[in-house]
Design a protein around this nucleic acid. Structure first.
Length: 464
RNA sequence: GUGGCCAUAGUUCAGCUGGUUAGAACAUCAGAUUGUGGUUCUGAGGGUCGUGGGUUCGAGUCCCAUUGGCCACCCCA
């Protein structure tokens, strides 16, 4: 006998969890559609060549490869084995599980470029896989919910995405969040200003850890990466001057632009202008001031790892919760370039469902409705009442009421216990007395109250 | 890929410097209650102590190996 188990970093989702997860999925899906995004699905597996080289050297290692079917050693020689596993994988694996939703989307856009109407807005909710070592809040199989707009560089898209993010979390009841926005051009410009042109990737990776390892840690990492003290001092004067920590009005965008007057730079100016424009669009899209802009914060230290972002960058953090980023995204100028279609600009965001789940759980924000789907359970005592009960069930369902029957004339204790463990709010009890009078017993499982009512009245009540 | 911690009932865990028949809570099932759950009381079932080897008169406990899990780093959602 073998012990049952699932691979490390994967999970079963119990019915209780699925009901809650669907609550999240449905709200995200609804909001995506409200903003004009169309659904898209791509296969779980892609050709390996589509995925490799898109996520950097580290990323390639984290792609789950699929062993060729049949005799997967057929195309290999003993020489290949000598050369090591890295070269060998290409010979024994031609397919791999998708690593994210963005690259398959780019592949789709290129393959269907002649059939798509641009700007093309799609959303995609599917699992992705990473051969990472799992840890808290990190899994080897997890869902992403992506929405992207490709084929335009209008900053209205950025503004709309910010509003979309805000609306999703509002619907989920998660009020205490911060939407951070930055622009890759600002970071690139800052790299130029401090004399490290082209090193913005290293700069970003280090700055991104500011929360985690602090100022000293970032300094050490940058010095290790070949930044000198002069660069660091300049960086400090940009990010940590007294002015920049004291001011918080409005969105400290203006103080940054003010500070950078000392270090004039074309890219920085562009970035600042873009963010400024995004703020203006948001204002217009919210009737000029209704949008609670406190949620939105310009953060010049926001970096995000992904190397393909070129313009705006977003990240959403839940405040006062141990879990970090729950959503993120940005603009990329040339995502489809590697597939032979240059100059297609796009901007997108991604929601991390698993982390949102953990946050909602931690803050106890799932509504009661998100714990059960059945509204009423029909119970009966014997064969006679069974004949009466089943047509009742039929009518309930005709009226659109989610209902089920306990399919045996078991002891009432057992039937009610069933309703209780499934958190079904109402039970309709049918026995000889009910059959005789035509008035059924409706029991509220939460309060324990029960009353005799006609089926019509019960239906009325359940429909409320 | 690197480092640390852990593995005992369905679950969470106790189990002393090695010493009789490995315990508890919760969960499950049955009964108290033959038309009423969630509370209470009573009882029952459930374990080759992750796996393999070693030390010992004797191993859940010590040693080695192996597998699995958790956590941190790298990176990321």
């Amino acid at each position: 006998m073998q012990k049952p188990g699932i691979p490390n970093g994967t999970r079963d989702f119990s019915p209780e969890k699925m009901i809650k997860r669907n609550f999240i999925f449905e709200n995200i899906r609804k909001t995506f559609q409200k903003y004009g995004f169309l659904p898209l699905e791509t296969p779980a597996m892609e050709n390996l060549s589509v995925l490799t080289g898109k996520y950097g050297e580290e990323g390639d290692k984290l792609i789950f490869k699929i062993l060729n079917s049949g005799d997967f050693l057929a195309k290999t020689t003993s020489d290949d084995f000598q050369k090591g596993s890295r070269l060998l994988t290409g010979k024994i694996s031609e397919k791999a599980l998708r690593y994210d939703l963005t690259v398959p989307f780019a592949r789709y856009v290129v393959m269907n470029r002649n059939d798509l109407t641009f700007p093309f807005k799609r959303y995609q909710i599917q699992p992705v896989w990473r051969a990472d070592r799992p840890q808290k809040g990190r899994y080897r199989e997890f869902y992403q919910c992506d929405a992207d707009i490709v084929g335009t560089d209008s900053l209205i898209c950025e503004a709309e995405l910010v509003l979309l993010i805000n609306e999703v979390f509002e619907k989920l009841g998660l009020k205490d969040i911060t939407i951070k926005i930055n622009n890759r051009k600002i970071l690139a410009g800052i790299a130029e200003v401090i004399g490290k042109k082209g090193s913005e990737t290293e700069l970003c990776v280090a700055i991104d850890k500011l929360d985690k390892i602090g100022q000293e840690g970032v300094k050490n990492e940058l010095l290790e990466k070949g930044f000198n003290n002069d660069s660091w001092e300049k960086l400090l004067s940009i990010f940590y001057s007294k002015q920049s920590t004291e001011s918080n009005e409005p969105n400290n965008l203006y103080r940054l632009s003010h500070l950078l007057l000392n270090f004039p730079n074309k890219l920085v100016n562009e970035g600042i202008k873009e963010i400024d424009q995004v703020f203006e669009y948001i204002s217009l899209l919210t009737g000029n001031s209704k949008f609670k802009i406190q949620n939105l914060e310009f953060d010049p230290t926001l970096a995000r790892g992904l190397s393909y972002y070129t313009g705006a960058i977003f990240e959403v953090k839940a405040n006062n919760v141990s879990i970090g980023s729950i959503s993120g995204g940005g603009r990329y100028d040339n995502l489809t370039g590697v597939f032979g279609l240059p100059d297609v600009s796009g901007v997108g965001i991604s929601f991390g469902v698993d982390r949102i789940y953990d946050v909602l759980e931690e803050l106890n924000l799932f509504p009661d409705k998100a714990t059960s789907t059945t509204q009423a359970l029909v119970c009966y005592f014997d064969v006679e009442s069974e004949k009466y009960a089943l047509p009742v069930l039929y009518k309930l369902r005709q009226e659109g009421i989610n209902s089920e029957v306990f399919p045996e004339a078991a002891k009432m204790k057992k039937q009610l216990g069933y309703a209780d463990s499934k958190k079904i709010p109402y039970v309709i009890i049918i026995g000889s007395e009910e059959v005789k009078s035509g008035e059924l017993t409706l029991k509220n499982m939460l309060s324990g109250d029960q009353e005799r009512l006609s089926l019509e009245k019960i239906i009325q009540k359940l429909k409320q």
